[in-house]
Simulated assay, not measured.
Amino acid sequence: MQHLRNCDRLLTDPGGLVQRMADLLDLDSDRLRQWVFARCVREAIDHPELRDVALRLTPR
């Protein structure tokens, strides 16, 4: 998560970043998206900018 938090793309294109990381690491992109969503919700208390990231990662 620390690498993702340090990446500006998390704030500008969270879905694209999750997909890119899933592809690079050969991970299930839906599972990674859910994990990043949960971490953003948890950390949004101290980092309000992650609230928007979490909202953008919710399934539509």
Score class of each variant (00 low, 15 high):
1 M>Q: 10
2 Q>T: 13
3 H>Y: 13
3 H>T: 13
4 L>M: 15
5 R>A: 12
5 R>M: 14
5 R>Q: 12
5 R>W: 12
6 N>F: 05
7 C>I: 03
8 D>F: 12
8 D>E: 14
8 D>R: 12
10 L>K: 07
10 L>W: 07
10 L>C: 07
10 L>V: 01
10 L>M: 06
11 L>P: 03
11 L>R: 08
11 L>N: 04
12 T>R: 07
13 D>F: 07
13 D>R: 06
14 P>Y: 09
14 P>K: 08
14 P>F: 09
15 G>S: 07
15 G>Y: 01
16 G>H: 05
16 G>C: 02
17 L>G: 04
17 L>K: 00
17 L>C: 04
18 V>I: 06
19 Q>T: 11
19 Q>H: 09
21 M>D: 07
21 M>K: 08
23 D>P: 00
23 D>K: 08
25 L>K: 08
29 S>N: 04
29 S>F: 03
29 S>D: 05
30 D>Q: 10
31 R>V: 03
31 R>K: 09
32 L>M: 06
32 L>V: 01
32 L>C: 02
33 R>K: 13
34 Q>T: 04
34 Q>P: 02
35 W>E: 11
35 W>I: 06
37 F>Y: 09
37 F>D: 03
37 F>T: 00
37 F>I: 01
38 A>Q: 13
38 A>H: 10
39 R>D: 14
40 C>Y: 06
41 V>K: 12
42 R>N: 12
42 R>A: 15
43 E>W: 13
44 A>E: 15
44 A>M: 12
44 A>C: 15
45 I>V: 15
46 D>T: 14
47 H>Y: 14
47 H>M: 13
47 H>N: 15
48 P>E: 15
49 E>L: 13
49 E>W: 14
50 L>E: 10
51 R>V: 11
52 D>I: 05
53 V>I: 02
54 A>W: 02
54 A>L: 00
57 L>H: 05
57 L>Q: 04
58 T>N: 05
58 T>S: 10
59 P>T: 09
59 P>C: 00
59 P>A: 08
59 P>Q: 08
59 P>W: 07
59 P>F: 06
59 P>E: 10
